[in-house]
Amino acid sequence: MIFPILSGLVHPFRAPATWLLVFFNMLVLIYTSIAGLEAQEGLEDVMKGKYFLTAQGRIYAQYLSNENRFEYPDFLIELGRKVDGGELTRAEMLGQLAFRDLKFMNSSESLSYDGDQVAFRYWRHKLDDVRGFQEAHPSFTLGLNAEDPSFGKWVSYIFVHSGSLHLFGNMLFLLIFGAALERQIRSVGLTIVFLLSGVMAAGVFALMTGVTSSPLVGASGAVSGVMALYCFLNWGRPERFFYWFFLPFRGFMGFVFLPAWVALIIWGINDLSGYLGTLPEMGGVAYTAHLGGELTGLAIGLILYAVRRKWPLVERPETPQPMGKLFPFLPQVSIGPSPRKTNSGSQAA
């Protein structure tokens, strides 16, 4: 494991915009969790309903066989054909995928079905319940989805998260990179970069993946932009990374100084791999939004570089950083130029 520790834990007075964004996101999560509790439980009950999902899968399979094949990816058409042909073990999975097809979901009233009419009526009735839950769920009202792709959603989605783990991951990286970046481009600059990266991330997502009935939520596109801009502005400067090789031996844990672009490469490769390696129909992590945010951060960096040939670096304080105070026994290895002396002077890990 290797993890960037840039400025350590920056005091809120030194990075007010970052901390405000973090707290605002936390408040939104608290609000959406409370407001959407009943709707969330209702949606989870529906998702657990095997009969409903199987019925939806069978109906969707028949719908796919009647629709224009070129509108849908091949594997979906093939899956529909298998379910239609009697492979009902896949009907539930197809039923899950059907939620992302807005055209299908909106056509439920006018749809005809040649099969189990009891299941068909049950499905229609439950779908009305699902719509009710979605209308009451903050992720759907504030997230970016095909039902309402207005511009307000392109900004509001940034502050909505699907759960505490999702929020924690995004806010951790916002604190690491946002606080460091804010000390370079000031609070207003950081806020602009954050919002602009988020909006552009949504744009790239809409272009490459497509907006569906499942909402896009999360600040990861915006955070990717912040991270990319920081790496661009500090391209060759050595930054501190914490490493751990999972074993309790000397030299298997410590700090290492690597150029800032290493973080961008690791993050970029991860997102690119995710984009190339996952089926967009399955949902999950919106890698295209991450890539969009990173590209936006890099673009902003290029613009700033073009406008000002040299960007002054805010001097780091001489007092030891909190991470250094917490782990004084850990060796620090430098690869390339090091900004300060190592603790022990040793080259060995």
Binding site: I2, F75, E78, L79, K82, E87, T89, R90, M93, I266, I269, N270, L272, S273, G274, Y275, L276, G277, T278, L279, M282
Partner: peptide, 25 residues
């Protein structure tokens, strides 16, 4: 640190193919 990210990138199309074949059985 070096090879796993590279492998994940190069094997991404295979991973997609694997997921598709798993879904289709």
């Amino acid at each position: 640190i070096l090879l796993v990210p590279l492998y994940i990138l190069l094997s991404a199309p295979l991973k997609k193919w694997m997921m598709t074949s798993f879904i289709l059985g």
